[in-house]
Design a protein around this nucleic acid. Structure first.
Length: 240
DNA sequence: TAGGCCATCTGGTCCT
DNA sequence: AGGACCAGATGGCCTA
């Protein structure tokens, strides 16, 4: 079992490195080498459509969810959301087709209430996903990667992976601080604060949070992302 | 054009 | 019974 390589930028393309350079100074300085590299790999590219443009920001939590589905492109799944009472529900028909004749999933419900029940379930699910996305936005807001408009929003998986790594990094830094304080309190006469772990406050070896997790290198992008196998990455869990 | 990412719909399962 | 959660399917948008 060997850990993923500590996020050598070699795993990143030139574009990713360019993005790395474009990270805001604070974020760049605050992050360990590996974390930054991961950030560069995760913050994908330049100007992507805004959430609003993609209709993703729409109703939000608590909103009563006006029956206006996120304005996705016409013909998209949203069209079939049933929120538009106008044309016959495409998704509903699809579903019936899929289920085949006699495949009434909702028991003996009459079609009309069955349909309205489905709509309310859909709306609830949509709201739930919006809440989830809001939470992810909140997470993105506190992860130091690059919040500049020239850098694309982190994907969901990237957000989660970076957040995890960031937490690990912070924990490591905190640990270093504690050791430093303990060392200073003991007086300078002692050799090293912790025999087994020499104080190297900002050395990569000490700060880099990924080396601890010795696991298989991810065959896919996870390695390029964070250098650490992730429970969120299916490739990391595929096989030993 | 392929691949990545995403929103939405949907049916199933579990919980209250 | 109804709601929350989950995962699969589908299709659109965007970038390399």
């Amino acid at each position: 079992m060997s850990a993923c390589p500590p996020s050598e930028p070699s795993g990143l393309g030139g574009a990713a490195m360019a993005e790395l350079k474009s990270l805001s100074g604070d974020a760049y300085l605050a992050l360990s080498h590996g974390y930054v590299a991961a950030a560069a790999g995760l913050a994908y590219g330049a100007a992507r459509g805004t959430e609003a443009a993609r209709g993703y920001g729409a109703p939000g939590p608590g909103s009563d969810l006006p029956e206006a589905p996120a304005p996705r492109a016409p013909g998209a799944a949203a069209e079939s959301s049933g929120e538009q009472s106008g044309d016959e529900d495409y998704a509903f028909e699809q579903r019936r087709r899929r289920r085949g004749p006699g495949g009434a999933a909702d028991g003996r419900r009459r079609p009309r209430e069955q349909r309205s029940l489905r709509l309310s379930i859909n709306a609830r699910e949509r709201r739930r996903m919006h809440d989830l996305n809001d939470a992810l936005d909140g997470l993105r807001a506190v992860i130091p990667y690059a919040h500049s408009p020239s850098v694309r929003k982190l994907s969901k998986i990237a957000t989660l992976l970076l957040a995890k790594n960031y937490i690990l990094m912070q924990a490591q830094a905190l640990d270093e601080m504690r050791r430093l304080v303990a060392y200073l309190n003991q007086g300078p006469g002692l050799a090293t604060p912790v025999a087994a772990a020499p104080l190297t406050p900002f050395a990569q070896a000490a700060v880099y949070p990924f080396s601890a997790s010795a696991a298989l290198p991810c065959p896919d992008k996870c390695a390029a992302f964070s250098g650490t196998p992730s429970a969120l990455c299916k490739h990391c869990n595929e096989k030993p």
